[in-house]
């Protein structure tokens, strides 16, 4: 049996949960799939009712007052006991920030393999599954095998399966609500409410065209090169994370998993390598242009048009061509 752990907040599932169900359904052999969703009373049940639409064997809502809000200690304890009861061969998660926060602890406690950020699975000669994951910031790909006894824990990279690829059942899957085995007093983290920092002046998600700069720009003093292109294209200026970390542009102009998600008509990436955390924020753009001196930069994986070259030569030429 494959256990998929879905993620909800306030009864709303995230899209990545459906992606992970799609990943589980993609594993050959027709192994039954059980989906678990954790939370306080209400949230988990609401989410479970939605999950029942998926073509899976069963949905389990795991409830406990100490599971709302999320804490690493609470989720680890609840899943440790659920896994003990269900005895799955593998446990799949979406590779969200919440997963990153507690699943390594769960794996360490169970002393079972944990493969993270997996983008796909493939069968090997002996029938056992091989998992594909990026390494070295996406510059290389590895086929990896878990070692040691089951269950193996696997987290799937956001976007590696499409949420609408999750097959729906002809009738709703049975839903079961169980009380989590968990001692609230053992939870050490005391979380406050999540919040967003003060509302931002620029809403990049509304921009039609975006010129985005990465570490290839080298220094704040060179930002004018990118600004000139943005002006010529009537585009907003945005950036990868390191540019905002360095304070060269405000955080509100950061594109990616921890910044804004954008989908303009045109996205021009200047000196951006194309790390997955950047790609998830801009992959949905209509037309993507990448200018990068490294022909193997992962950004070219998602680009429609690419120029391999020095941005300090190409960008001024581009501004000139646009103004002609």
């Amino acid at each position: 049996m494959i256990l998929v752990v879905a993620e909800q907040r306030g009864g709303t599932l995230n899209r990545a949960s459906w992606e992970t169900i799609a990943a589980a359904q993609h594993i050959p052999g027709g192994v039954p799939i059980v989906v678990a969703v954790l939370g306080g009373s209400g949230g988990a049940t609401t989410a479970a009712a939605q999950l029942a639409a998926a073509a899976v064997h069963e949905v389990v809502a795991v409830e406990h007052p100490s599971l709302e809000p999320y804490t690493a200690d609470g989720f680890t304890a609840a899943l440790q006991s659920l896994i003990g009861q269900l005895n799955p061969t593998s446990v799949l998660f979406p590779h969200t920030y919440q997963t990153r926060d507690f699943v390594p602890k769960l794996a360490a406690r169970l002393d079972r393999a944990l493969l993270t950020d997996v983008t796909g699975t493939k069968p090997s000669d002996d029938g056992a599954l091989v998992f594909v994951r990026p390494m070295f910031q996406g510059k290389l790909t590895a086929d990896v095998r878990p070692q040691g006894p089951a269950p193996h824990l696997v987290t799937f990279q956001i976007g590696s399966y499409r949420p609408d690829a999750a097959a729906r059942g002809s009738s709703p899957a049975p839903v079961k609500t169980v009380a989590a085995t968990l001692d609230g007093a053992s939870v050490r983290q005391r979380p406050d409410q999540p919040y967003q920092e003060a509302r931002q002046a620029v809403d990049l998600s509304q921009a039609e065209r975006i010129v985005s700069v990465g570490r290839g720009i080298k220094g704040q003093e060179h930002l004018s090169v990118a600004q000139a292109l943005a002006d010529a294209l009537k585009a907003e200026l945005a950036a990868s994370r390191p540019i905002c970390d360095a304070g060269w542009l405000p955080m509100e102009r950061q594109v990616g998993s921890s910044g804004q998600t954008v989908a303009p008509k045109l996205y021009v990436a200047l000196g951006i390598s194309g790390a997955i955390q950047h790609l998830v924020g801009m992959k949905g753009s209509n037309v993507i242009v990448a200018i990068n001196k490294d022909p193997d930069a992962p950004i070219f994986e998602v680009a429609d048009y690419g120029i391999v070259g020095d941005l300090f030569e190409v960008v001024p030429a581009l501004v000139k061509a646009l103004n002609e």
């Binding site: 510059k139 290389l140 590895a142 086929d143 070692q147 994986e301």
Partner: peptide
């Protein structure tokens, strides 16, 4: 003991 093992490392397809 490591709990995972690289079978093959290669350039992304």
């Amino acid at each position: 003991a490591a709990r995972q093992h690289i079978v093959r490392l290669y350039a992304p397809q």
